[in-house]
Design a protein around this nucleic acid. Sequence first.
DNA 1: ATGGCTGCTTTGAGCAGA
Length: 258
Amino acid sequence: MKLATWNVNSIRMRQARLIAWIDRQQPDVLCMQETKVEDDRFPLELFRERGYQVALHGQKTYNGVAIASRLPMTDVVCGLPAEGGGVDEQARLVAAAVAGVRVVCAYVPNGQAPGTPKYEHKLGWMERLRLHLGATCDPAAPFALCGDFNVAPDDRDVHDPVAWNGQIMCSEPERAALRAIAAIGLVDGLRQLRADGGLFTWWDYRQLAFPRNHGLRIDHLLLTAPLAARLREVAIDRDERKGKQPSDHAPVIATFDP
DNA sequence: ATGGCTGCTTTGAGCAGA
């Protein structure tokens, strides 16, 4: 099974590149973040004509997540449970079962800067995700938490750790929140296979960040042990960041043995 | 060229992203 995650930064703006990418890479399951579109305006037909069904959880302008699968998909759940009942009003989480694997697609809040209300919201959201997964994820079953976490787990994941020290996506509370989520029983898929630094998934649109390779690794696939045991390969599709009108994130693709 | 932000919106300046 080929499972990918990609923050597309507007599915309508990315439509042509996304379809070309799907035709080239042929993922079985694709988790998308920042689709930025309400469900009735999502380009569903492009997926359907390629044999994909799509679990949608969109909203206008901001956020929006979706899972496309060309294998049968069941048990779709939209949204992160909110405190005191109900669901998070921001569309940042969608989950489904595919081929015996529970797949959760997450778009963690950006957090703006440490010390701001958005930063506190980010930490609170990650803690609510931890509690939700603690209650619903069986670490003994095949499970993948995929998405844009907006956190670089450690300094290997940062092009300039000194400049980024304590900044958003690199601060210790964010890293601790990510470790707390993983402590449910999840391993970083890429790190299971590779220990080297300089592997990035996001580059700022500004200041020639991509040609200078000023990037961060903030998109991840976190796996329970039974699924991690089947992991054969993880690739960051860096080429997808090149050319005209790229997303600022590159897709990450994991391949699993049956 | 891998090139100095991009996408969104009560259509246009301002917000948000990371």
